[in-house]
Each structure stands twice: as structure tokens, then as C-alpha cells.
């Protein structure tokens, strides 16, 4: 059900409704899982969260991992997302409803986090960084950071570019 809702939002954004006034501020994240030509490919584990300047976590947005393995065995590799594991992962009992979901295939993935109605919760005004960390079984690890200020005064389009485990990262802030 959750997946259906996020797909609906994605469609809305793609159709150009993003500029329409919304009741609440929102963070939209478009993250690219790169297609890799490697002998053994596993979809990466990906975590995204919002960090305060002291590196404490203001909001845990999403965690993609192998949720389908029996006996919750997929949790064994959560620690490979080292920063996420350190900042919050090790304090959570995965899976967490609304936060964790299955790993995703190569391609672009859109997620929307309306304030007050998603894992974003409500953010106090201030400086933050949106962090995306990816770790792939028998592959590498990559971490991207996008600094931003909250609440956004106007619509903002922020970008970062991954080099191996992540592709383009686009963060859209809607006031």
C-alpha cells in the first residue's frame, strides 16, 4: 500500500503538479541506482536520513534492504551502511514499519516526504544535511550529502552526483 501511495506521488510530480501549492513543506528525493556491469550483482542497500550539524539524526527517511530473507537474515549487512548504522541503525529493531522496504532495481527512484505526514516528521528551523548511503554486497559503498536549510523560503533544486554505487541525487525542497 505504501508503495502505491509513493508511486501516486511520483506520478503527480512527473506530471508537473510539484509547483502546485501544498499544505505542508516537502522534501522530494530522486536517487539513481546505477546499472553496473559486474559478474555478481546484488541490489544495493540504501539508507537516507536528515542530519543535524552535530551529525545526530533529525529524521530517518528510508532504508532499503533485503527484507525478504528468512529469519530476518538481511539485517546481517545493515552495518555495511556504516554511517547510517552508527548514527541510528544500531539503535533500531529492523524492520521498522514505514521506514524499511525492499531493495530496488537500477534506475531512478522518487520519494516524497511531506512534513508531518511521512518519516520526515517535523523539522525545527535550521541547517541540515540530507544523507544517502549505499552499500552493495560484494561491491562498494558510497555516501552523498546535500546541505539545506529548513524551512525552505522558495522551491529549491539541489544536486549531488555519485561515482560508483550511487548515480544522480536530486533533492527538491518545496516551501
Amino acid at each position: 500500500m505504501r508503495v502505491l501511495i509513493s508511486r501516486a506521488l511520483l506520478t503527480g510530480a512527473a506530471a508537473g503538479f510539484a509547483a502546485a501549492p501544498l499544505a505542508a513543506a516537502e522534501i522530494k528525493v530522486k536517487v539513481e541506482v546505477p546499472k553496473l556491469t559486474v559478474a555478481e550483482y546484488h541490489r544495493p542497500y540504501v539508507a537516507m536520513w536528515v542530519e543535524k550539524p552535530d551529525q545526530s539524526v533529525a529524521a530517518n527517511l528510508a532504508v532499503w534492504y533485503d527484507v525478504k530473507l528468512k529469519d530476518n537474515e538481511g539485517t546481517k549487512w545493515l552495518k555495511d551502511m556504516r554511517q547510517w548504522w552508527r548514527r541510528t541503525g544500531r539503535s533500531l529493531d529492523m524492520p521498522v514499519d514505514g521506514l524499511s522496504s525492499a531493495t530496488r532495481a537500477p534506475g531512478e527512484h522518487q520519494l516524497s516526504f511531506p512534513e508531518g505526514k511521512s518519516t520526515l516528521g517535523t523539522l525545527a528551523p535550521g541547517k541540515y544535511e540530507l544523507v544517502v548511503e549505499a552499500a552493495r554486497e560484494v561491491g562498494g559503498r558510497e555516501l552523498l550529502r546535500v546541505p539545506f536549510e529548513w524551512p525552505p523560503k522558495a522551491a529549491q533544486n539541489l544536486k549531488a552526483q555519485g561515482e560508483h554505487e550511487l548515480g544522480a541525487l536530486v533533492v527538491d525542497l518545496a516551501p
Partner: peptide, 8 residues
């Protein structure tokens, strides 16, 4: 030294 999951 740092492990996640169970049965470690």
C-alpha cells in the same frame, strides 16, 4: 568488530 543482525 561491528556486526548487525542476529546469530553472529
Amino acid at each position: 568488530t561491528v556486526l548487525s543482525g542476529s546469530d553472529n
